[in-house]
Simulated assay, not measured.
Amino acid sequence: MTPAPIIETDRLILRGPVASDFEAIAAFYADPIRSVGFGGVLPRDEAWRWFASSIGHWQLRGYGFWTITFKGDDTAAGICGLWNPEGWPEPEIGWIAFDGFEGKGIAFEAATAVRAHAYSALGFTTLSSNIVPGNERSIALAERLGAKFERTYTNVNMGTENLYRHPAPEALT
């Protein structure tokens, strides 16, 4: 299996998903407001399938979603990572801050670190973020990361989405 490398920031540890992270994923997918950007509410069994597929993504693509934790506390605070399932236009960087962890800057900190890893360790030359229309918090974060709206397209799983283009590696130095 392809293990997720550990990424450290000033405050965070981004690590591979483990079985105990599922409860936070299930709670996220049970919330109709929070889950809208990831396809909406899923029953617990389908949330399990999403979780398992995100772990399998590491094996198939060599990258995926990391679990965000604070240093010194292994509680899952969110996820952030690189996602490119069948039907996606290209690899994207995505993020979620779980309930109780929003407004602490962890999604920005994690996404900055994941993007740097994608460019330096994986050799990516571009990244996008696919954001459902109306997800103003996610749009604000993408723009804070320097991403610019590029186009609207039809995502095979999500319907209409807005593709935000992140700055190329050379633009970040």
Rank of each mutant, 00 (worst) to 15 (best):
Thr75Arg: 15
Leu141Cys: 10
Phe65Glu: 00
Trp83Phe: 14
Ile131His: 00
Ala118Gly: 14
Glu23Lys: 10
Arg137Ser: 14
Ala26Cys: 11
Pro133Leu: 12
Ile55Thr: 06
Ser138Asn: 07
Asn155Ser: 12
Arg15Ile: 01
Asn84Ala: 13
Asp21Ile: 00
Gly40Ser: 07
Glu92Lys: 00
Glu150Phe: 05
Gly87His: 08
Trp66Ile: 00
Ala168Asp: 13
Ala27Asp: 15
Arg151Ser: 11
Ile33Gly: 08
His117Leu: 14
Tyr63Ala: 05
Glu86Leu: 14
His166Tyr: 06
Leu163Cys: 13
Gly134Ser: 11
Glu86Pro: 14
Glu23Phe: 00
Gly105Ile: 09
Pro3Leu: 01
Ile131Phe: 05
Glu23Met: 08
Glu90Lys: 14
Ile93His: 00
Val41His: 05
Gly64Ile: 02
Thr160Asp: 15
Asn162Val: 02
Thr112Trp: 07
Gly94Leu: 13
Gly159Lys: 05
Arg11Trp: 13
Leu12Arg: 12
Asp31Ile: 02
Gly64Cys: 10
Arg165Tyr: 00
Pro85Val: 04
Gly40Pro: 03
Phe149Tyr: 14
Arg151Thr: 13
Ala4Gly: 11
Glu109Tyr: 12
Arg144Ser: 12
Gly81Arg: 01
Trp58Ser: 01
Asp74Gly: 02
Asn162Leu: 13
Gln59Ile: 05
Thr75Gly: 03
Val36Tyr: 10
Glu143Asp: 04
Leu122Cys: 07
Ile13Ser: 06
Arg34Thr: 07
Glu8Leu: 14
Leu42Ser: 10
Leu163His: 01
Asp74Val: 00
Ala116Asp: 15
Asn84Glu: 15
Ile7Glu: 03
Phe149Cys: 03
Cys80Val: 03
Arg165Gln: 04
Ala47Ile: 00
Asn157Gln: 12
Gly105Trp: 12
Phe108Trp: 11
Asn135Tyr: 10
Glu109Trp: 09
Trp88Phe: 14
Ala4Phe: 05
Ala77Arg: 09
Met1Tyr: 02
His57Gln: 09
Thr69Met: 02
Pro32Gly: 04
Gly81Glu: 01
Ala168Lys: 14
Glu8His: 13
Arg144Trp: 04
Gly103Phe: 03
Gly56His: 06
Tyr153Ala: 13
Ile25Tyr: 13
Pro89Ser: 04
Arg34Phe: 08
Ala107Ser: 14
Gly123Met: 02
Ala121Glu: 15
Val36Pro: 05
Asp21Asn: 11
Val114Ala: 07
Leu60Glu: 14
Glu90Thr: 15
Tyr63Thr: 11
Glu102Ile: 09
Pro43Gly: 11
Val132Ser: 08
Glu8Ile: 12
